[in-house]
């Protein structure tokens, strides 16, 4: 038996919106301590990893580990039934064939229920090695979204360079070349801060198209954390207050 109730259902709605363009069918892993999922996009360029702790739920019960295979496209359709102020409850029996999703609005007394059919997904579960990232950049999520969006109109690829003084996003395309450079900024206004933690400089290239997809999660968190290490995938991390973390891994491009 699994049951989890999230008071701020909007968070779940936003999570589904933030991953639905990247992954299609996903195994959701339920454990007594929380909910997690890991999935790659169809072209194996990016990987999504979500971890939600039971502590963030108003009510949480999972007697055993369970795997719920879900079509994210269909889950997104069901989530459209939820009002932004709804509480969301997820329920599944042992050996379940469907996931029951309940939306409740205590103010308007409206309740919506949907039984989403589960599917069997044969997906690879990958082990992500512990990595000590040599460059970690914490940046306002709205600002990072805007930089990626605007640079994408100029080039498909961005080169990210870090050093102790700045992080630089540079592009080169038919239009020309240029860069956005952000220095360490620990101003009093927290939302303006850019925090650089660089032990070793990194220079890598990435497909901006994917960064734009990841940035849909910027509504979940005021800050985006970029973790970089030469020869390793970029991690774009969004912390979800009191609940968990949504991470996207993106393989770097290499010059032939």
């Amino acid at each position: 038996m699994f049951e989890a109730k999230l008071t701020e259902g909007l968070i779940l709605k936003k999570i589904v919106e933030s991953i639905k363009d990247i992954v299609t069918d996903v195994n959701i892993d339920i454990s007594p301590s929380g909910i997690s999922l890991q999935a790659m996009d169809s072209s194996h360029v990016a990987l999504v990893s979500l971890n939600l702790s039971m502590d963030g739920f108003e009510h949480y019960r999972a007697d055993t580990n369970m795997v719920l295979g879900v079509s994210i496209a269909n889950l997104a359709k069901v989530m459209k039934l939820a009002d932004n102020n709804d509480q969301i409850t997820l329920q599944a029996d042992q050996e379940a064939t469907h996931l029951k999703i309940i939306f409740e609005n205590p103010k308007t007394e409206r309740t919506t229920e949907f039984n989403l059919n589960l599917i069997t997904i044969d997906s690879e579960h990958l082990a992500i090695p512990e990595t000590e990232y040599s460059s970690v950049v914490t940046i306002n999520s709205g600002e990072f979204s805007k930089i990626c969006k605007e640079l994408f109109s100029l080039s498909e690829t961005v080169q990210i360079t870090t050093n102790t003084d700045y992080v630089q996003f540079s592009v080169e395309g038919e239009v020309g070349s240029g860069q956005v450079r952000l220095g360490h900024n620990d101003s009093e206004k927290k939302e303006d801060q850019t925090i650089l933690e660089v032990s070793e400089s990194v220079q890598q290239q990435f497909a901006i198209r994917y960064l734009n997809m990841f940035n849909k999660a910027s509504t979940l968190s005021s800050f985006t954390r970029l973790c970089l290490h030469q020869e390793q995938p970029l991690v774009v991390e969004f912390k979800i207050d009191n609940l968990g973390v949504l991470k996207y891994f993106l393989a770097p491009k290499i010059s032939d």
Partner: peptide, 14 residues
């Protein structure tokens, strides 16, 4: 020319 690497190259199969 720039090639896109496969994310699976970086992780281990469980």
């Amino acid at each position: 020319l720039i090639g896109q690497q496969d994310i699976k190259n970086f992780f281990l199969k469980k």
